[in-house]
């Protein structure tokens, strides 16, 4: 092979690999990203049932019902709207009524949210940044302890 051909192979290989990676990334970004919504977003924007989303807000006080099996139901609220959620499994350590929560799953046609994972990303004082931010943008007054500038959270 001549020097030129060798260089062509190198450049071709490099460009080819990058092109493949780019196509993969574009497809993956289309198919596998999950949008974050608050209960108000879901009501206002009309999120389609069946679409995979993340639902964030506070666990409404008094809404947690533990059945005999491992299915638990609760309501997620942003104090304006609330969405009923059902989840089968073991809730994370930090799941508590009145505290921030992020649930991932799909909205069913009857308006219930079926979560397959629940993250409670907060400790005693703080709440998830995404939740705090969107609550604040909705005009919800947050107490001193829930200030978005002081986020302490768990790794999912």
């Amino acid at each position: 092979m001549t020097r030129k051909q060798k260089r062509a192979v190198l450049i071709g290989g490099g460009v080819g690999t990058l092109a493949v990676a780019l196509i993969l990334v574009l497809f993956a970004l289309q198919d596998s990203i999950v949008f974050f919504h608050t209960p108000s977003d879901i009501v206002e924007k009309g999120v389609q049932p069946g679409q995979r989303i993340r639902l964030g807000g506070l666990v409404e006080a008094g809404s947690v019902v533990r059945g005999q099996g491992t299915t638990i139901t609760f309501k997620v609220t942003d104090t304006l709207k609330e969405i009923p959620v059902s989840f089968t499994g073991v809730l994370p350590d930090l799941f508590r009524e009145g505290q921030g929560v992020v649930a991932e799953g799909v909205l069913k046609p009857d308006g219930q949210f079926k979560a397959d994972s629940v993250l409670a990303k907060h400790d005693e004082n703080y709440m998830p940044r995404e939740v705090a931010k969107s609550l604040e943008s909705k005009g919800v007054k947050l107490g001193e302890s829930a200030h978005p500038g002081q986020v302490k959270a768990q790794m999912p």
Binding site: V20, L24, F27, A28, L29, D31, S32, I33, F35, F36
Partner: peptide
């Protein structure tokens, strides 16, 4: 201002094949 999460499916589809 749109909030999304990029989870394991993204990396399985992109990093894995490479």
């Amino acid at each position: 201002g749109e909030k999304i999460s990029v989870g394991p499916p993204f990396f399985d589809m992109t990093f894995g094949p490479l």
